[in-house]
């Protein structure tokens, strides 16, 4: 008898916990306007949202499948697995086989320097570098690439042509300076007529999009860099 009595609160707890678990699942709230019988749907977590003027609306929780014309809810972040997209949305992170993170946005992607990690908090992206510093990334790789290409008078940055974009920290002492470093080989003409190739680098500030530094070989001042067509 005593055991049975003890079992009652446990059972009640279990029923409530199960109920809470079931209700926490994504459902759809069917909202009917009682005036014009217009039906709208809203994706919720088990309960309908509080709406003022509730008297003219009726609420009904319906399964998610019943929703019509409701955009699918945003995909929750997945586990950090090799070659899996971690975060959905316009930009995405991808972990490469060498355990480096690739930050992708539209046509361009930037590799995070070795030992660096990227985290996403709502719409803010934060980079944690191997030297222990961290910084917010406000500029997307495609914007940075376009600014660097404009400065270097280049047309495009294709990975197959050995063009790389790396997200790294170049701050000195206690300052953190996250930059996108675009590196590419380009054609140059020494004295304006001797054809040659040279490696060029441009660093773009990942916080405000300004050009931080442009690096060229020593002999670059004696060479012309024709604009790519």
């Amino acid at each position: 008898m005593k055991k049975a009595l003890m079992m009652i609160p446990i059972l009640v707890f279990a029923v409530f916990a199960l109920g809470a678990f079931v209700s926490a699942e994504e459902t759809c709230c069917k909202i009917t306007n009682l005036n014009n019988e217009k039906v709208t749907y809203e994706i919720t977590n088990g309960e309908c949202p509080p709406i003022p003027r509730a008297a003219i609306f009726s609420f009904e929780i319906v399964p998610l499948e019943e929703c019509e014309g409701v955009p699918m809810p945003p995909e929750p972040p997945r586990e950090n697995q090799a070659n899996k997209i971690i975060s959905p949305g316009q930009y995405r992170f991808e972990q490469m086989e060498n355990k480096r993170l690739r930050f992708m946005h539209e046509n361009y992607s930037a590799m995070c320097e070795e030992g660096c990690n990227l985290t996403e908090n709502q719409t803010r992206i934060r980079a944690y570098f191997a030297n222990g510093r961290n910084a917010e990334i406000k500029i997307m790789p495609d914007v940075a690439a376009e600014r660097a290409l404009e400065r270097l008078r280049l047309k495009n940055c294709i990975e197959a042509e050995n063009c790389t974009i790396e997200l790294k920290d170049v701050g000195e002492r206690n300052e953190t300076l996250p930059v996108y470093e675009l590196q590419r080989e380009r054609r140059a003409k020494i004295f304006g007529f001797i054809g040659s190739k040279m490696n060029v680098k441009a660093q773009v500030n990942a916080e405000n999009g300004e050009i931080v530094k442009v690096k060229k070989p020593l002999w670059a001042f004696l060479a012309s860099e024709p604009q790519e067509e």
């Binding site: 004295f191 004696l222 012309s224």
Partner: peptide, 24 residues
């Protein structure tokens, strides 16, 4: 003349091989 060529390129983003005649 090489430095002048480089400066014009960096400041005005303008380049002409004519500037490289003198160093050559």
């Amino acid at each position: 003349s090489g430095v002048i060529h480089n400066l014009i390129y960096a400041v005005f983003n303008f380049e002409d091989a004519v500037f490289l005649i003198l160093p050559f």
